[in-house]
């Protein structure tokens, strides 16, 4: 699968397989287009070539109606949570239920309470998203994304900007939800330690392609310089510190051209 944004090639012949019922982590440096990957899976963007299969059906060649039907079976936790700011937490969680089901209000209220209980926010059902902390907002958004009991949950940077406690809570939640609901999870992140503890399978992306894949143990023991740079957080290495640019000397002395 190849994808370009403008002239920049984001992915060049990348192939990723996500096993059912497991947590698959996709790691890579910032700006590598990990969010783009999730949007490609969700059918919001189309690849230039290649195919994306969701449960053996091609997302790329789906009609609009089919795509919307498929999206009901997947859900995505956005980096910012993306809660609707004009509704309470409870209404946010109830939103997908009200849109896609014909359940009575009583049943919806019960489901909302259960889902919020799962993320530990049942007490916040009447709060507005602006009153929540970042970690709570993300948990509320998680409750919303599991409201329809999806088959696939995609987490976009779930750990970014979280304090250690809420990070621990989220790690625990992702693991527990995956096991309890038997869903397939894709976690996109660059937080190495957390991922190594929860993921069943890991892909590391850099430089438009996959540089490492395998179980957490495989990754730890990888002999690839790139993978080791990423795991240990070295500033310079195979992934260069500098964004491609003409040599500094040329720019400063004006002899670049």
């Amino acid at each position: 699968m190849t994808f370009r944004r403008g002239d920049r090639v984001i992915y060049d012949n990348v192939s990723i397989e996500v096993p059912k019922g497991k947590i698959t982590a996709v790691m890579g440096p910032s700006g590598i287009g990990k969010t783009t990957l999730l949007r490609l899976i969700g059918g919001q963007l189309l690849p230039d070539s290649g195919d994306i299969l969701f449960d053996n059906t091609s997302v790329v060649s789906m009609s609009r109606g089919e795509l919307y039907a498929a999206r009901r079976r997947m859900s995505m936790l956005f980096q910012s949570g993306a809660l609707f700011t004009d509704m309470t937490v409870g209404d946010n969680v109830a939103f997908p239920l009200k849109e896609h089901t014909r359940l009575s209000d009583d049943i919806i209220d019960t489901i909302v309470a259960l889902k919020l209980q799962a993320v530990g926010l049942r007490g916040a059902v009447n709060m507005m998203p602006s009153e929540l902390s970042g970690g709570m907002a993300r948990r509320a958004a998680l409750a919303r994304s599991i409201a329809l009991d999806p088959d696939l949950i995609m987490y976009d940077e779930p750990f970014a900007g979280q304090d250690p406690i809420s990070m621990g809570v989220l790690v625990k939640l992702i693991r527990e939800l995956n096991d309890a609901l038997d869903v397939t999870s894709i976690v996109v992140t660059h937080d190495v330690t957390e991922v190594l503890t929860i993921a069943d399978y890991i892909y590391i992306l850099a430089d438009k392609r996959i540089i490492g894949k395998g179980t957490p143990d495989d990754i730890r023991n990888s002999d690839s310089a790139l993978v080791q740079q990423f795991l240990n957080g070295e500033a310079d290495g195979p992934v260069p510190f500098h964004y491609p640019a003409p040599p500094l000397k040329d720019s400063l002395l004006g002899e670049g051209s």
């Binding site: 969700g42 919001q44 859900s75 995505m76 993306a82 809660l83 700011t85 997908p96 896609h100």
Partner: peptide, 14 residues
Amino acid sequence: ATEQLSSLEMMAVD
């Protein structure tokens, strides 16, 4: 900007 539109789309709501 806060990805609410994307999130609607991912919830299969146009």
